[in-house]
Design a protein around this nucleic acid. Structure first.
Lengths: 152, 152
DNA sequence: CGTAATTAAATTGCGCGCAATTAATATGGG
DNA sequence: CCCATATTAATTGCGCGCAATTTAATTACG
């Protein structure tokens, strides 16, 4: 297989396995809160601004209702939020935190710290890497197609 | 929620959404080959070295048999590889590419190029970012625990 | 030897992630 | 006003990822 791309050359695999490693690192930290990692992301969005629609949450996290609806139902069952149809527009579903859901943010406060430590990285380094990834992500979303000249 | 971590501060979310964007960018490129992205990764591993065990493939990709067994069965059904118990150690399953599976590497040759172009990134930039992510990944795997001082 | 401990895959169960479809509501044009 | 079109969620189906368990084969130990 002389022409085959090499795994070790792939940025995509590095990102893929880094993400999985992050997920595994989060698991024991989130388990005491009763959250999975995607559920934690939804809570982050709601802690920043309560009362958002499913659509708004989805835009923020780049997820659709196929993923969010069952996830939100589980968080509702867990007592962290409520879901109710909008009054002026009944197509929308507004998601509100319960007191329990709001209180959870305090327990979650130390999680980023723990992760940063586990990675042994400085704030500036993390920050730069984050922006780099978001830039490339946005270019990927924008491109969607094309055939060009470098490693993927 | 004054103490809550912010989504925009999170490296984890940047990596998470970058990975999903990559996945979506790969989809239309891999569909003509009849592969999903994880299946493509397995093929990359086998194109580099045919005849590996499930364990070896899993170590390379950081995946376990719970993920690999059904995935490999699908690739077997698709005619890209065969799975057979090892002769000298019957606990192992050796995975071999079929001619069709080997031939697929040629069609896949242009994929990394297309992705690199879609990201609009130089080889050096990609390369550096890749190493950075792998370094942090390995630190995460090594740490597994701890509570420290920076953003995650 | 023979039994205990170890190892490799497979299986089970659950939660994403996403494409595709459906249902209900809202909007805009004639 | 009515109907075609848009939009928002929900639903369905499938393929990961992974923890936990099970099964089978190998190795280590007394």
């Amino acid at each position: 297989m002389p022409s085959a791309p090499k795994l070790s050359d792939q940025l995509c695999f590095a990102a893929y396995s880094f993400t999985h490693a992050l997920n595994r690192a989060y698991r024991p930290l989130l388990e005491p809160l009763g959250l999975t990692y995607p559920q934690y992301l939804v809570m982050l969005v709601l802690w920043e601004a309560d009362g958002q629609t499913v659509k708004e949450i989805g835009e923020r996290l780049k997820l659709d209702s196929g993923t969010l609806t069952p996830l939100l139902k589980r968080l509702e069952t867990g007592g962290y939020l409520t879901r109710q149809r909008g009054r002026q527009d009944e197509r929308q579903v507004i998601v509100n935190l319960t007191n329990e859901g709001k209180a959870l943010s305090e327990k979650a406060a130390e999680i980023p710290t723990a992760l940063g430590c586990a990675m042994g990285a400085e704030f500036a380094e993390i920050s730069e890497l984050r922006e780099h990834l978001l830039t490339l992500r946005d270019r990927l979303v924008e491109a969607g197609c094309a055939v060009g000249e470098v490693e993927g």
